[in-house]
Amino acid sequence: MPSDIAVRLSGVSKSFPGYTAVSAISLDVPAGKFLSVVGPSGCGKTTLLNMAAGLMPPSEGSIEIFGAPLSGINRRAGYMFQQDSLLPWKTVRDNITLGLQFRGIAPNESAEQAENWIRRVGLDHFSHHYPHQLSGGMRKRVAMAQTWIVDPDIVFMDEPFAALDVHTRLRMETEILNLWAETSKTVMFVTHDLEEAIALSDEVAVLSAGPASRIIGVYPVDLSRPRNLIDIKTDPRFLDLYRTIWTDLKQEVLKSYARTS
C-alpha cells in the first residue's frame, strides 16, 4: 500500500562543500497527516524540505512520494518558503493565480477562485497592490493563498508564521488548520516553536543540532480535533507533551548555543 505514506525519507543525508547538514534521516509522513519538524536554528530543516520538494537531490539515501521515487521537482507538492518568494512584479491577485496561470487556466476562468482566496486571506482591498506595498504578514498571507490555490496533495511550509505578531499568527494558524481539515492534504510544517508544533500537528519530529543532524525522536500528538488554539496551551495533556519533547529538544538547543557562541 504505497500511497499510505505521502513522503518517505530513507537514510537521507545532505552534504554541502565542507559541511554535512543532515545525516541518515529516515522519516515517514503519513498521507493526510499534519507533521511538524522542529529543531535548533541551522540544523537543516529547510534543507530537508528542499530535498522533499525536489529542489535539491540528497547526497545519500532516497525519497519516495506516495510510493514513487522522487526525481526532479515534486509535482504533487506546494511549498511555502521561509524567505519572501512572491514575484515582486505581479500584483497580489496575479501572484495568487500564478500557479493556475502556469497550468494554462485563463484569468477569467480563475477569477472566481481568485476572489475566494483573496477574501479568505483577508486582502480584499489589496488585490491590485504589489508585494512591496504590503506588510510582512500580508505577504505571508498571499504566499499561503498562492500555495494552496493549486490544490497540491502535499504542502510544505517553512516557518510561515515566524515573523508575525501573536494575533495575526493565531489567525493564520487557525486558518491553516481549517484548510487542512477541509481537504485531505498532507502537511509537513517546519517551525522552531515547539508550542506551535504541538498545537497544530499529529506528529512532531525533533532534529538534533547540526552539523550532521539526525532525528532524535518522532512524537505522536494525541490531542483531539478540532482544536481550539487559544485554550489548547493550558490543556494538561498539551503541557505533558510539551515537557516530554522539550526535555529532548532542550539538549539540542543548548548544544547549538554552545557551538555558535
Partner: peptide, 21 residues
C-alpha cells in the same frame, strides 16, 4: 533563487520561467 524555485514549485515550464520570472 527563491523566487525561481517558487515559480518552479507552482508548475512553471522553462518558457514560463523566462516570461514570468
Amino acid at each position: 533563487p527563491v523566487i525561481l524555485n517558487n515559480a518552479r514549485m507552482l508548475g512553471a515550464s522553462e518558457k514560463q520561467l523566462i516570461r514570468h520570472v
